[in-house]
C-alpha cells in the first residue's frame, strides 16, 4: 500500500519538476513583458532534439548539450528581435498571438530538419532504477529534480542580487520609470527571452531521456507548463515551482487511485478550482488597479 503511494509520488514529482521548469520560463517572460510566450514548449523541444541530433553526429554528450542550449538561447534572442520587437507598441494580446505563430513556425522548421520520428536519449547516469521502500525511481528523475533545484537557486540569486536581474524586475514593474532611470528596456526584454529559452532548453535536455523527444513534444508539455504557471500565480517564481509539482502529483495520484481516464480532467479542473477561489493563483501578487 505504502510502496504504491510512494511510487505515485515519485512519478508525480518527476513529471511535476518538468512542468515547474517550463512554468519558470513562462514566468520569466511574463515578468519582463506581461507576454505569455507560447513558444516556451518549443525551446524545450529544441533542447532535446538538438542534443539528440548532435550526439548522433558524434559530438560528445556534454558538448552537444551545451551547443543545444546555446542554440535555444540564440533562438530566444531571434524570437524577441525578429518577431516581438518589430511589433513594439502592439498590445499584449497581439504579442501573445505572435508567440503562438512563432511556435508553429519553429515546430514546422524542426519537422523539416529533424523529421517526425521520436528519438531516444540515453540516461545521464546509470539505467538501473533506484529502489526506495519498494518503489522505484528512475535515476534520471534525480537529475531532473537536481537540475531544477539548481536552476531555481540561480534564478533567485539572479533576480535579487544582480543588477541585470533587478533591471528585469524594474522593467516589469514600470517600463517607463525603468527607462527614465537608464534601463534599456528592449535589451532587458531580449535578455528575458534568452534566459527563458535557456531554461526551457535545459529542461528539454534533462527530461528527454524520460519522455523521448520529437518535433511536437513542446505542444503538450508547454500547455501543462502554462497550467502550472497559472495555478501558481503567473509571474511568481515560487508559484511556478509549487504549481508544477502540485500538477504532477495530482495527475499521478488520480491516474493511480481514480482512473487513468480522468487523469487530465482532474489536472485541468484543478486550475478551474484554484482560479475560482484565488483568481491570481496560489502565489499571485495582489495587484491594485490604479484608476
Amino acid at each position: 500500500m505504502f510502496s504504491e503511494f510512494l511510487q505515485y509520488l515519485f512519478t508525480g514529482i518527476t513529471i511535476g519538476a518538468t512542468y515547474a521548469l517550463i512554468a519558470l520560463g513562462f514566468t520569466l517572460i511574463y515578468n519582463a513583458s506581461h507576454v505569455i510566450n507560447f513558444a516556451q514548449g518549443e525551446f524545450l523541444m529544441i533542447g532535446g532534439m538538438a542534443t539528440v541530433s548532435l550526439t548522433a553526429m558524434g559530438v560528445p554528450m556534454l558538448l552537444a548539450i551545451i551547443l543545444a542550449v546555446v542554440l535555444a538561447g540564440v533562438l530566444g534572442i531571434a524570437l524577441q528581435r525578429l518577431a516581438i520587437a518589430p511589433a513594439k507598441n502592439a498590445d499584449v494580446v497581439t504579442l501573445i498571438i505572435i508567440t503562438i505563430g512563432a511556435s508553429i513556425f519553429i515546430r514546422g522548421l524542426a519537422q523539416l530538419v529533424w523529421g517526425k520520428e521520436y528519438h531516444v536519449m540515453a540516461n545521464f547516469s546509470s539505467d538501473e532504477p533506484i529502489q526506495i521502500f519498494g518503489a522505484v525511481l528512475n535515476s534520471q528523475s534525480l537529475w531532473v529534480l537536481g537540475v531544477g533545484a539548481v536552476l531555481v537557486a540561480i534564478l533567485v540569486y539572479f533576480f535579487t542580487r544582480t543588477l541585470t536581474g533587478k533591471a528585469i524586475l524594474a522593467t516589469s514593474m514600470n517600463k517607463d520609470a525603468a527607462r527614465l532611470v537608464g534601463i534599456r528596456t528592449q535589451m532587458v526584454l531580449m535578455l528575458a527571452f534568452m534566459v527563458s529559452a535557456l531554461l526551457g532548453s535545459i529542461a528539454g535536455v534533462v527530461v528527454a531521456p524520460i519522455t523521448f523527444t520529437s518535433y511536437d513534444i513542446g505542444i503538450i508539455l508547454g500547455l501543462k507548463g502554462f497550467v502550472a504557471a497559472a495555478i501558481g500565480g503567473l509571474g511568481n517564481g515560487m508559484g511556478a515551482v509549487v504549481g508544477g509539482l502540485a500538477l504532477g502529483v495530482v495527475e499521478a495520484m488520480s491516474a493511480g487511485y481514480l482512473s487513468s481516464d480522468y487523469k487530465d480532467a482532474v489536472a485541468f479542473s484543478m486550475i478551474l478550482v484554484v482560479l475560482f477561489f484565488m483568481p491570481r493563483g496560489l502565489f499571485g501578487a495582489k495587484v491594485v488597479e490604479r484608476v
Binding site: 504504491e4 523521448f212 508539455l221 499521478a252 491516474a255 493511480g256
Partner: peptide, 11 residues
C-alpha cells in the same frame, strides 16, 4: 501525449 505511465502500471 503522456510521458510517463508508471502510475497506471503500478496500479
Amino acid at each position: 501525449s503522456d510521458t510517463d505511465m508508471t502510475a497506471q502500471l503500478t496500479s
